[in-house]
Amino acid sequence: MKNINKNTVLMNLMRGRTFFVLLVLVIFFAAKSPAFLTVSSIISVMRHVALYGILGIGMTYVIITGGIDLSVGSVVGLTGMIAGGLIFQGLTILPLGITIYFNVPTIVVISLALGAIIGLINGFIITKFDVAPFIATLGMMNVARGLAMLRSNGATYQNIAGYEELGNTGFHKIGGSLGIIPNVVLIFAAIALIASVILKFTPLGWHIFSVGGNANASRLSGVKVQKVTTLVYMFSGVCAAVVGLITSAQLTAANPSSGDGWEMNAISAVVLGGTSMSGGVGTIGGTIIGAFVIGVINDGMIMIGVSEFWQKVIKGIIIVLAVIIDQFQAKLHARMALMQQSQEMNA
């Protein structure tokens, strides 16, 4: 009996482990650098956290189904370039010799649709041709990055604030603020809320867990496994497109190499948040905390002057440690379930 109680305490401690890590990190950086807890620095950290967080939310869905999406970083770059290009050059339809300029809302819709289509292609390749998600999205990662480069021949679109005469001003507002709170943080909060509600309260959300837990059993229970799988990659693509729009709007410039390597930050956030890489388990809340940890480590270490190279080493160690604790927790969980079972039998 006592043993089980002790385990329960340990279990709860481990559930909140990432939060404790976050707390320790914040205290550490605040002690090292007094500037860390000022309003302006907190807002700056939040901006970065929100970007990784949005990518992480899409990635959480994908990883819960047991997959992975390596293409999100490239999609950030590609959607930024497409949006920037549409503002800058419009869409030229060659046979007719005309160029159409869209207004900003239309450009936003086109960009998000692009993210969804890329996700659809990922999902299609994975479900219809049985390609491993790692490979399918690795391919897409390269294709999307290449297309982004091709769009401008590798150049950056500068000053994409829009033009009065083309009717596409206001793009930079996406990267603005409401009061002191950056829009990106609000968008992050909104996406997190919606994603969390879907996961917790809709059939689709429950199916996402069941597909990741056991695709075979789900299929035999009538769950449309292929549809669910495709939808999560589409969602991940849309999240990446949102990040692509925001980053280019914040800078009023679109850079084809933007988002390079961000998929790794997203995956790290998801894993730190306790989502299991083998699927079936995970929460949006966990990913949010995970994104904070990544953001705080990145910015905090810059502020106290740790070299970029050491930053990488430390980040890597923290991620692996988190997963080691995860495995330990899973074993403890299984042992507790067994103990419960034998207790029931004896009762």
């Binding site: 867990f209 069941s210 990741g212 056991n214 075979n216 699927g279």
Partner: peptide, 8 residues
């Protein structure tokens, strides 16, 4: 393998 989703 086919009946249960163990994670649920």
């Amino acid at each position: 393998r086919e009946g249960l989703v163990q994670a649920l």
